[in-house]
Structures are given as C-alpha cells and as structure tokens.
Amino acid sequence: MTDLPASPPGRKQLGLVIDLDICVGCHACATACKEWNSGGHMAPLTDFHPYGGDPQGVWFNRIHSFEEGDGEGARTVHFPRSCLHCAEPACVTVCPTGASYKRAEDGIVLVNEAICIGCKLCSWACPYGAREFDADVGVMKKCTLCIDRIYNDNLAVEERLPACVMVCPTHARHFGDLGDPNSAVSEMVARRGGLDLMPELGYRPVNKYLPPRLDRMAPAPGPAEPPAAPDPAEGNRLLRWIDRLLSR
C-alpha cells in the first residue's frame, strides 16, 4: 500500500547527513553509487550510448556546484543530491500501483520494480529530482540507501554503510538514525544547524544538509587603500634611484 506507515516520534529513520562545508565536489560518491547499484537491489542503472556522442544514464546521486555570495566573500559549494527518504514523501502516496513504498521499520523509500508500471508520476511528485526513469526497463529507479549493504551479513561490519558514505574521501557524508535524537548524526545536525531542503513544501526530508561554516569565511575585503599622494620625488633622478633601492 502506498499509504504511509505511521511514524511516531523516535521511530527509526535511516538517512544521510551531508556536510556542504567540506564536500570537495570530487564525484567519488556518485561514482561509487553507480558502481555498487549497477549490480545492486535496483540494478541495472542503464546507460545509453555510454561511449557514444550523447551518453545518458540513470544515476541515484548527482553532484551539483553552486556559488554563494559575491566578490571576495563568495565561495563555491559542491552539492550532492540524492533521495532524502522524506518522512512525508508524496512520491509514495501518488503511486497508483503500490510499487513505491516507505518501509515502516527504518523509513527507507523504495520502488518494487516488479509491479511499477512506469507512469512517472512519482518523479513529478518528488521536488528534489531523486527519481529517474529507466527507459530501457520501463520502470522508475531511485536511491535505496544501499539497503543491500547496510543489512548485508556478507560484508565486514565496518563496510555495512551506503557506498557513497564509505567512499567519501573528506568524510562529508554520514549515515545513521535521524529518528533518534541522541544518535551521532542527530547530534551533528543539532550542533551544526543542519537544514531541510525546501521545507516550505512539507515533505519533511530525513536527510539533512550542514551549511558551510561562516567562521571559515574568507576575510571580508577591507576599505580600499587611499590613492597615493603625488610623489614629490617625481622627476628627480637621484631620489628615484633611492626610492627604487629602498623598495627592493
């Protein structure tokens, strides 16, 4: 059923915390995601013309780059975008077949590919562009939070993490239970002022984004130096020579 499971406060809500302060935009998470999921739960992640002139394909995670601010106070912010496993996901409730669902036990939003009819309505209902249609298979695809890693007994315990989190070289991505206010990720969100994307739409995303720290801001440009007064030494060769000597 595409009805949403009841989510009393404290119910497990697995998700990601993404630190926009330290993401360097290397696309490692997107690449690792593509690699793992090409053989994972939602496989394949079809590519069309991968070596041709017009390559296109399905990705669960895409890294955008933005600029924030103007002039010397501005900075570049790299912005990984994937499913936020929302608490109020309209992508699930609009689904006419029951293919889209939100798991009661951990809040992960998934698509059952065996019954999806490929009507694409869920991708219209997601504000964040997290769902991509696979035109080859004819069904919708999306991030699974690496459900086939995080519960995978065949992996070493320290590898039971989403592929994107495992691979991030700067530790900009964290995985945990955001439904538990005392979890490490929840505490990080509280400490750093973690944000919901487009809170005005009311989807209540589980994933949180940590905004770039302000104290690491480049120094604001000081007042411009006053224009130099006309040099009295102008025209005097001896004084010019001394000036050059002294300014070495």
Partner: peptide
C-alpha cells in the same frame, strides 16, 4: 532548494 544563502546570492556554477 540548497539551504545556502547565508553568504549572499546563490547561483549555479556547474551541472553534474
């Protein structure tokens, strides 16, 4: 959409 803006205006720099 990005949660940015504390430093000023936000513009896209590069697509993925």
């Amino acid at each position: 959409a990005t949660g940015l803006g504390r430093r000023g205006a936000v513009r896209m720099l590069e697509r993925p």
